[in-house]
């Protein structure tokens, strides 16, 4: 920890995290919502329809960002699991508790928007192909992360179990990523490669990348707000929490 600047070290302490992070959340919410509005309105109204799919491709501007972050949030939870098992940082467990529901809803949105997109284009909302099945498994893993905490009464054991589930479950992420390459699937291959070509025309990239950035910002904001909530629940007996519980502070 000694190599981190002081303001970052403060964030590892529940009390300072709780106090310092509040001003960030407001700005992340504002930036995320404005960006999402700009990107979505741009994508819905100001770009031409796709040459084959017509207007139905526009759900891509929602589907792609939520699907990307459904997976990235899971990776971050697995990293927090490693941090918990190795360094026993309190905030790692707080992060896992706060991020799991957010990842669950991102995955649900990715599956839901994919089903809506599939109806006009593929001619079916759901096929048991490798990409869809592995994404469905991701949803179940998130559900496991949420439920496991409630079925194990001892918090320390629950966190250890959660960390192991998160790390083992992360095996699913590269399989989701490469399912469309390794296997024959109904789902098309990736359009955006991090170190490669983008097979999306330039005029569609501006709203798409605006929405990807906005979903990232909004996801970060919601997770931080959740972390604040989890922090105050876990520290309810501490003196510094009392004014917040009694409503004397906002």
């Amino acid at each position: 920890m000694k190599f981190l600047p002081l303001w970052m070290q403060r964030l590892a302490s529940p009390q300072y995290f709780f106090l310092d992070i509040k001003v960030w959340i407001v700005w992340l919410y504002v930036l995320g919502v404005v960006g999402l509005l700009v990107g979505s309105i741009w994508g819905l109204a100001f770009v031409p329809p796709e040459r084959l799919q017509g207007n139905s491709f526009r759900i891509m501007f929602v589907h792609v960002p939520v699907a990307i972050f459904a997976q990235i949030v899971y990776i971050s939870i697995a990293v927090a699991g490693v941090v918990h098992l190795v360094w026993k940082l309190k905030m790692a467990d707080v992060y896992m508790a706060a991020a799991a529901p957010v990842g669950f809803w991102l995955t649900a949105l990715a599956l839901g928007s994919g089903m809506i997109w599939g109806m006009p284009t593929w001619g079916t909302p759901w096929e048991w192909d490798a990409r869809i099945v592995t994404t469905f498994i991701l949803l179940i893993l998130y559900l496991g992360l949420i439920v496991l905490r409630q079925v194990i009464p001892n918090p320390a054991r629950a966190t250890t179990a959660l960390s192991i589930l998160a790390i083992v479950g992360a095996i699913n992420i590269p399989i989701i990523k490469y399912s469309v390459v390794w296997f024959e699937t109904l789902h098309q291959p990736a359009s955006i490669e991090l170190f490669g070509d983008i097979s999306i025309d330039k005029i569609y990239r501006i709203p798409l990348f605006t929405n990807i950035a906005s979903v990232f910002i909004l996801t970060a904001g919601i997770i931080l707000a959740n972390m604040r909530y989890v922090t105050i629940l876990r520290n309810a007996s501490k003196n510094w929490v009392q004014p917040w519980i009694q409503g004397r502070n906002r």
Partner: peptide, 30 residues
């Protein structure tokens, strides 16, 4: 992608036909 049965003559009797779409997104002008 077609769903159905291959008959003995080698003709596929499809009950459902699905369309795959590729990963390229282009405006109509192009």
């Amino acid at each position: 992608v077609v769903v159905g049965r291959l008959n003995a003559d080698g003709v596929f009797d499809a009950t459902r036909v699905l369309a795959k779409h590729d990963e390229n997104y282009e405006p109509p002008e192009l």
